[in-house]
Design a protein around this nucleic acid. Sequence first.
DNA 1: TATTATACAGTATGATCATACTGTTTTTAT
DNA 2: ATAAAAACAGTATGATCATACTGTATAATA
Lengths: 233, 233
Amino acid sequence: MKMDVWVKRHQSYGAADMTTLEPINNASHGRRSQGDRSRVMRDRLVTAAIVCIETHGYAGASVSRIVQQAGVSRGAYLHHFRAKHLIFKAVALRLVGDVFRRLGDMEPNQGSTAEDLRVVLHTIWDAVVTGPEGRVFAELMLAARTDEVVAQHLRRPAFRALRLFGWGAQRRIPIAKTSPLTSSDVVRLAQWTLRGMALDTALSLDPKFFHRQIDLFVDMLAPHLPSASSNGG
Amino acid sequence: MKMDVWVKRHQSYGAADMTTLEPINNASHGRRSQGDRSRVMRDRLVTAAIVCIETHGYAGASVSRIVQQAGVSRGAYLHHFRAKHLIFKAVALRLVGDVFRRLGDMEPNQGSTAEDLRVVLHTIWDAVVTGPEGRVFAELMLAARTDEVVAQHLRRPAFRALRLFGWGAQRRIPIAKTSPLTSSDVVRLAQWTLRGMALDTALSLDPKFFHRQIDLFVDMLAPHLPSASSNGG
DNA sequence: TATTATACAGTATGATCATACTGTTTTTAT
DNA sequence: ATAAAAACAGTATGATCATACTGTATAATA
């Protein structure tokens, strides 16, 4: 009797409550360990939170919306995240991991020229900055300015990101010896420029406009790159 | 009898309810026109909204907080702003006006060199980007990404800002003739870089760090400036 | 001066928020 | 197989939200 009720509930996840995620299907997995159950549910909730932050903003990512997006109950949420800020911490960690995984995938050509850098920046713009990771990351960074708890959770991942970007840059982006800039400086400035640009995407300008601006940034940088500079090394 | 009650209420604004703004004092003004009353009250509410956005974020700037910050009642608020988004529109217009007034005040030296540009950027960073205007503007821009109404209200002021910045730049920031960049390009990129940097201020890095980064940006730009470039005009 | 419109005060309402709480199902341990 | 623990479902609660609403004070108008 009661079992029938539960089955009906579970089926409803795939129909009414769920929007994007796959419905929970225990039968296909068979017997799952508690560790698996936990991990899957946590991932599910974090993914839903990211979707909610992206579509409704940091403050608009309410528990109600998150659990509805995830297709689970409030109880499941509260079991894994006793307080609201804890799920944002998990979101921050996931974001950093995703970004690095994605950047690691796109290994640029060695011996980069201005053209290679241009391609990399356009790709990062499309795939990271204006994508879900970048949008959600910007939401969290801005929230951190008025919410000290969020700031504390973001500090470590952000520093780690800056460091790793710097290391990656030294291998991939050679700079002319005569330039006062280092590879790390260049990626840091490029990162900030792209992030600043991203704020203006809300104005719904022509996407081509932003790509032209990226080209201009590379033009600005060109004298500091080895092959394009007349006085470079 | 009733008059006494009102006097007590008005006095209380200066003591309990008010935090930053001056208390309302009808006696000193004598008889005020309705236009004046309206304008003063609107300014008062907009200023309070800006303070609330700066300290609590866009979503945290609730009507309760705004009217408490302004030291007025909810009725006054609702009389002037029938819906929440209308006060944000007023805030956006005020911000743009304030920024241009402030930028107009600091007229840089003519015949700008890299050093002059450096000074200008440091000043803009301190006075605008990391100041209340910049912080609140960033909040609104990010809110616009998930709130179409805010985006509509922000579009005109933002475009106007971009245009005016471009015009001001052409007069003030000469670019080497050999450079593919224009003065407008440079200020646009500089603006984005500073705004991107501003997001990282939530990490509470050393303020000197950001100023060093501004110097690096100017270094990056140096080959495109007339006096600092060996091949400049 | 009397009337009317506007400005403002203060409370009420329904929705939504984060979270607490109880009960059921599923896994683990014995 | 059975007891204990963990995962999860669903509802309840008190706070806060935007806004509606009624009443009073002040300015404009006659």
